[in-house]
């Protein structure tokens, strides 16, 4: 499971010396496949590219011109839309809110899940396996089951419309999977390392910080990237528990009622909101795919 990535190469095929003619025949046979893949690949990029180019079209023209028209009329392109959304406060503050929620919603569940994962993997206590089973069973609960009661709870205790409230909700729903993943990873850490530390008189907390966390880093990194994107991309939770505390998705959503009229805000804001996860994805592609492969139960 851990060796797979987007660019997983097929196992090398042993190549016996081939005549040029045969190689040409093979190439000719593959040409339709090449053409098909190039066309489909480009087609897959068109929607995102289209949004990007549309977001560059001058505000006066953005409602009447299609993005492809910039190729015949390059003067349509300006950065005015981006300049004006950054001149206004709404989108930048929504971006900042998103950053806080995404960071908090990534760091907190990882700390909590790592502590629990360590306990499930290496500490002795009665009912351990049953408890672990119970935690994993919570994976099946869709977050819709908690929206209404937590909405009421947050309204009562003043967590409604706060960044902290959103972080706590994301944390709780990240835990079943995070604990499952980290416990399974931690259990693979050689026992000798832990015992050596125990004999040296290290406390469990020291072992956790000095041994488990550094050795568990690959799993933690994978989890962190996956969770960061998950929280960054969330709409449902923030829409339910926030009103003025708006991450970027909700800020864009509130403009969607007048889609055409607000396109000069929606298009650039949507592109910024997707550019950040895209960069994270391209930088940490391998980790992301690992998280995804492991996370296909979520």
């Amino acid at each position: 499971m851990t060796t797979v990535s987007v660019d997983a190469e097929a196992a090398p095929v042993v190549v016996v010396a081939e005549s040029v003619a045969r190689r040409l025949t093979r190439l000719a046979a593959k040409t339709p496949v090449y053409v098909f893949l190039v066309v489909i690949g480009l087609l897959w990029l068109v929607p995102t590219f289209g949004l990007f180019v549309q977001s560059l079209i001058a505000p006066s023209k953005i409602n009447s011109a299609g993005w492809w028209e910039v190729f015949s009329t390059p003067s349509l392109i300006t950065f005015d839309n981006y300049r004006s959304i950054f001149a206004d406060d709404a989108i930048p503050s929504a971006l900042l809110t998103t950053v806080w929620i995404a960071l908090g919603g990534t760091i907190l569940p990882i700390i909590v899940a790592a502590l629990a994962g360590y306990a499930f993997a290496w500490l002795e206590f009665p009912g351990r396996d049953w408890l672990f089973l119970l935690v994993v069973a919570l994976l099946v609960v869709p977050l819709q089951m908690a929206l209404i009661p937590i909405f009421s709870l947050y309204s009562d205790i003043g967590l409604f419309d706060t960044v902290f409230g959103l972080i706590l909700f994301h944390t709780a729903f990240a835990l079943p999977f995070a604990i499952f993943l980290l416990r399974n990873f931690f259990i693979g850490i050689p026992r000798d390392l832990l015992e050596a530390a125990r004999i040296d008189g290290a406390s469990e907390l020291t072992i956790f910080v000095r041994v488990i966390l550094p050795l568990g880093l690959p799993a933690i990194a994978s989890l962190a990237i996956f969770q960061f994107l998950w929280v960054w991309n969330d709409l449902l939770v923030a829409l339910t528990f926030g009103r003025n505390t708006q991450p970027i998705t909700v800020a864009i959503f509130s403009q969607m009622r007048e889609f055409s009229a607000n396109l000069e805000v929606i298009a650039p804001a949507a592109f910024i909101s997707l550019a950040i996860p895209l960069v994270v994805f391209l930088m940490f592609q391998r980790y992301f795919v690992q998280g995804l492969l492991a996370g296909s139960v979520k």
């Binding site: 987007v6 897959w44 990029l45 929607p47 709409l235 998705t249 996860p277 895209l278 994805f281 391209l282």
Partner: peptide, 18 residues
């Protein structure tokens, strides 16, 4: 693969806007 996989990284909401 990267071209086809890329939409997975962006939010379903942003995909909706697109």
């Amino acid at each position: 693969k990267i071209a086809v996989f890329m939409p997975m990284a962006i939010s379903l909401f942003a995909a909706g806007v697109i």
